[in-house]
Amino acid sequence: MGYFVNVEPGVNLYVEDINPGGNKTIVFIHGWPLSHKQFEYQFNVLPALGYRCIGIDWRGFGNSDKPMSGYTYNRLADDIRTVIGTLQLDNVTLVGHSTGGGIAIRYMSRHNGYGVSKLVLVDAAAPTGFSTETANKLLKETLNDRPKMMQGVTDTFFFQYITSSFSGWFFQMGLQAAGWSTAAIIVLLRDEKLHEDILKISAPTLIIHGIHDKVIPFAQAQELHQKIGNSQLVPFQYSGHGPFWEERDKFNQLLTQFI
């Protein structure tokens, strides 16, 4: 079922809550500039295995409200804290992909991992995000021809072949975001760093990363593994930036084993 959670006056986040009666809870934080729908191929499988799966659209993205402000790691992490508190969640596995991985890391650091027992980082944009050159290029395209920018993101996202139909679905997911929030997150990925945050993570952490990732280099996953004490790194040999789809069977199996 889907519903909205108020995180500050005038700002409501959309939450997709699948199998609320499940034995174990997994909270999914999507990547930029997508929505909870990117995890469709997890939601197809994991609830049937008895898991409660919660997908949260960040402010500015998906079905959530799209305010003009609040696009910092602190605010986005605070939004997640409000959702977890409002739903009275505990002992959850927090899964963050790309920028969602960055939000998850800031959440663990800023809120001392409140309610979270295990962490999964999927091609996380951490400890750094975009280079200044990449960010400025994406920012210019976003503010002048956002569909072109999104097509470029789609074209470089996956290592494996995608059909034109899948490409179109993915493309439209990205355009569901507001232009201003899309641009604001590019600035976040350029300017905010997570070096100090990763040192504060103590929860068991699974790091998944496609070795062919053109968005966030595999070397960054190796750095996370080195600096997060209680962590394991699993390279995905046939994935780019989207192992949740490119090697979805392996991804889903690994997730259930970790939980």
Rank of each mutant, 00 (worst) to 15 (best):
N91Y: 09
L143I: 09
I80T: 08
K193A: 10
G31A: 08
S164K: 14
Q88F: 10
F218P: 06
G22H: 05
L199S: 07
I54Y: 06
D79F: 09
G101K: 06
L233E: 04
I201H: 03
I185K: 02
Y3L: 12
Q172G: 02
R106N: 11
L199W: 03
L139T: 13
H225P: 00
E192A: 14
K200T: 14
D249V: 08
G229H: 08
Y71V: 03
I18T: 13
F166C: 04
A178L: 03
R248W: 14
Y71M: 01
I162M: 07
L233N: 11
F159S: 06
T205V: 13
F236R: 02
F170N: 14
A48C: 07
D57V: 10
D65G: 13
S109Q: 12
H30C: 09
S181D: 12
D123V: 04
E246D: 06
L89K: 01
I208S: 08
R52D: 00
G70H: 04
T163P: 08
M1E: 08
Q220Y: 14
E8V: 09
N112R: 11
L194K: 09
R248T: 15
G85I: 04
Q226W: 11
T154C: 07
V11K: 06
S202D: 14
Y41F: 15
I186R: 05
Y71P: 02
D123P: 00
M149N: 07
G50S: 04
P9V: 09
A203C: 14
Q88L: 10
S69V: 11
H241S: 10
N136I: 10
T132Y: 12
G101N: 08
A178H: 01
L121H: 03
F166Y: 15
L46W: 02
N230A: 09
N112S: 15
T163F: 08
G101Q: 05
N136K: 15
I259L: 15
I208T: 02
A183R: 01
G240E: 11
F258E: 00
A77F: 04
F4D: 05
G50N: 09
N63Q: 15
T86M: 05
N23E: 14
C53W: 07
F170V: 04
G60A: 10
Q176F: 00
I211Y: 01
Y238P: 04
T134G: 00
K137N: 06
I185F: 08
M149L: 15
V11L: 02
S35H: 07
D145M: 00
I105S: 04
S98G: 03
M150Y: 06
P127H: 14
I216K: 12
D213T: 05
F171E: 12
Q253H: 14
L87F: 05
H209F: 12
P20G: 12
M150I: 11
G10S: 09
L224W: 06
S165C: 01
S35K: 10
W58H: 13
H111P: 04
Y73H: 13
Q257W: 07
H111I: 00
A221N: 00
F170P: 01
L138F: 15
P20Q: 05
S64G: 10
R59H: 09
A183D: 03
D57W: 10
S69Q: 11
F61C: 07
L188Q: 09
Q38K: 00
L89C: 01
